[in-house]
């Protein structure tokens, strides 16, 4: 009878618990991201619900007056203050629209030039410069907008006989627009580069000029990606805080005139929560209701943007 050495396939190494522990740790880390989302939603909801107990939700969403006051005496006139968010929403939209009007043509045209025309050397210089534009903190844009752009617009406006507020929506919108250019440019660049070269070849082969090829073949094919990028950019504009805090005003006007002063959701959140406040007043709680509104708005835009971009990716993969 011969002896056959059996190979032991059961694990003989020292106990496995550290590996399990590490794996659990890894899983827990990835759950932190989920936890943060849950934390955001719940903390905003919790405080917002307390706010809506004082101010009814429809008065908040559809009210046309924003004048948050905390009563010094209980019997004071207008003691409760007005918490209609409509002027803030329209103000936010006005400034974001101006920003998108600036950023879309600039970002799109520069990405088209970089992707389709520029040689490698131009790209090597221009791309980092555009990235620099994206890397500059927004507080710097805000400072520049308040210090240089707003007075310049006012000067130009008054010399043309127009009435311009010293903190016009236009100044904040312009600075914000430039800030968003690199975002639009890099996302459109990705979308344009994802268009297969064979489509361009087909168009050139028919005798189309490069501009015709871009306008009629490349851009339509890249449109979903570009649209997704524009949605993301809009979401960034809506959530941007420092530029508007420094360059837009506190005046809650409902207007479509870019030369007037408007205020935004983010400006009001900052104003309500900096400075002295007692924590449970309607004024303080309203900041969380505004935060919830902001979060919902941007989340919807982000989800829509991702849906569009993912759908589009599948088409060429």
């Amino acid at each position: 009878m011969s002896h056959v050495t059996k190979i032991n396939l059961t694990d003989t190494r020292p106990s496995h618990w550290p590996e399990r522990l590490i794996k659990a740790l890894l899983l827990a880390s990835s759950l932190v991201a989920v936890l943060v989302t849950v934390g955001i939603v719940f903390s905003l909801l919790f405080e917002a619900v307390r706010f809506f107990k004082i101010i009814p939700i429809q008065a908040f969403l559809f009210g046309l007056e924003w004048n948050p006051q905390t009563a010094i005496r209980a019997d004071q006139i207008g003691a409760k203050g007005e918490f209609g968010a409509v002027p803030l929403i329209t103000g936010t939209l006005l400034i974001s629209t101006i920003a998108m009007f600036v950023a879309t043509p600039l970002g799109l045209a520069s990405s088209i030039y970089l992707a389709e025309y520029a040689g490698p050397r131009t790209r090597a210089i221009v791309k980092p410069l555009l990235e620099l534009l994206a890397g500059i903190p927004t507080v710097v844009y805000g400072f520049f907008a308040a210090l240089m752009i707003a007075p310049l617009i006012r000067l130009t406006g008054t010399s043309l006989g127009l009435e311009v507020a010293s903190e016009s929506a236009l100044a904040a919108g312009l600075a914000m627009g430039v800030m968003i250019v690199p975002l639009i440019s890099s996302l459109s660049d990705d979308a344009i580069n994802a268009v297969p070269q064979s489509l361009r070849d087909a168009s050139y082969g028919l005798g189309a000029t490069q501009a015709e090829t871009i306008k009629k073949v490349v851009l339509p094919a890249a449109l979903p990606g570009i649209a997704g990028g524009l949605l993301l950019a809009t979401s960034t504009a809506i959530g941007e805080t420092m530029i508007v805090v420094m360059a837009a005003g506190l005046a809650a006007n409902i207007t479509a005139n870019p030369l007037e002063a408007v205020t935004t959701i983010t400006v009001q959140i900052v104003t309500l929560l900096t400075g002295d406040q007692e924590f449970d007043s309607a004024k303080t709680l309203s900041a969380f209701a505004l935060g919830l509104l902001l979060f919902t708005l941007t989340l919807l835009l982000n989800i829509a943007a991702q849906k569009i971009v993912n759908h589009y990716r599948e088409r060429y993969d």
Binding site: V34, L44, S235, T236, T241, T298, N302
Partner: peptide, 25 residues
């Protein structure tokens, strides 16, 4: 997939909302 979507969305949440989270929590 849910965790992944979550992370992508979190990347695009306005920074001021994180401030609100910090204040409340």
């Amino acid at each position: 997939a849910f965790i992944e979507v979550n992370i992508n969305n979190l990347a695009a949440v306005p920074s001021i909302v994180f401030g609100l989270l910090g204040l409340a929590v």
